[in-house]
């Protein structure tokens, strides 16, 4: 099969949407944090914790949606830790973020080893199944790609609209954006910058964890070490790529996912027989860096990103 032919298969587009879904959850989560002025480098670890927590909950007998809730709650706990240290106490967002990633990852692995001490291959759960939307899923090419996905994927795309609406059309969204642009003005309005920022980081971290849970509860059906594999860092690049806007960030995630789906399939082609597979695996990361270079020039970085706000300081 040729590379061009791949682009016209429904399975390629279905895979693209599937690969994009966890990225969309986590990118939206990071975007909310950064819009409020906090860089959350805990994302990678929080995704690992969400992937395990959601899967473990379902494995222990809860329903799938309860599992998503558990993942979100665990993510929010790490968000609470991150924001407590970075917002009222103003600690370095780089160091705390990396610390949270390390803590979330290692405590997840510790919990996994304690919960399942003697397993060589992790047990499986019954994951979310594709739900074919009546009528729409019958459209050729588009139907199987867009409208026969799991409910969690639909939720990801609905959330893009919800986050966009809240950020740009509600007083709450205005307060969040202002906390990231001009916290002093927010404080002058009598609002608490600390509360807004902490809230944004906690909600954002919850979404990151749901992004992780997508991997174990929708894309696959069990938990593996290293399964997040740098997706969190890619989401940070996607936020920049999307100029801190939910819609653009979603487009970035889909573009990135299309590239990822393409490289997996290109490995099976005659080209893949000649080129080492590592070259294909490198492509998504190289693409992310190139995207950053192109977009950084005209990106509208939130003015107070990574700037702690301390009341009474001028």
């Amino acid at each position: 099969m040729d590379i061009i032919d791949i682009l016209f298969t429904a399975s390629f587009w279905a895979a693209t949407i599937r690969i994009a879904s966890p990225l969309i959850f986590a990118t939206l989560g990071e975007l909310i944090c950064e819009r409020a002025g906090v860089l959350n480098l805990g994302i990678e670890g929080i995704m690992v914790s969400g992937a395990f927590a959601g899967w473990m909950a379902v494995y222990s007998g809860t329903g799938l949606w309860v599992g998503v809730g558990v993942a979100m709650a665990v993510g929010m706990l790490f968000g609470l830790l991150h924001s407590t240290l970075t917002v009222p106490f103003g600690l370095s967002q780089h160091v705390v973020g990396l610390g949270v990633t390390l803590l979330a990852t290692s405590s997840t692995y510790y919990a996994y080893r304690l919960a399942l001490p003697e397993v060589t291959s992790p047990p499986k759960i019954v994951a979310f199944q594709p739900y074919e939307i009546p009528l729409l899923s019958d459209i050729p090419l588009l139907g199987p790609a867009l409208f026969s996905q799991t409910p969690l994927t639909y939720l990801a795309f609905v959330l893009v609209a919800v986050v966009g609406l809240v950020l740009y059309r509600t007083p709450l969204g205005l307060a969040v954006r202002a906390a990231g642009e001009n916290p002093a003005a927010v404080a002058a309005q009598g609002l608490s910058v600390t509360t807004i920022r902490m809230g944004a980081v906690i909600i954002g971290s919850g979404l990151m964890a749901v992004g992780g849970a997508f991997l174990t509860m929708s894309a696959f059906d069990s938990f593996f070490f290293e399964m997040v594999n740098g997706r969190g860092w890619i989401c940070i690049a996607l936020v920049v790529f999307g100029s801190w806007r939910p819609g653009k960030a979603m487009l970035g995630a889909v573009l990135f996912a299309a590239f990822d789906a393409l490289q997996i399939r290109a490995q099976q082609t005659s080209l893949g027989a000649q080129v080492p597979y590592q070259i294909f695996l490198m492509m998504p990361y190289i693409l992310s860096i190139l995207a950053l270079v192109v977009m950084s020039r005209r990106a509208e970085v939130p003015a107070a990103l990574m700037v702690p706000f301390n009341k009474g300081e001028r």
Partner: peptide
């Protein structure tokens, strides 16, 4: 993994 947890906790508490 207890070692990694100890280091992460030590890191976060030390910056604090």
């Amino acid at each position: 993994y207890l070692a990694d947890i100890m280091l992460a906790v030590a890191l976060l508490l030390m910056v604090f």
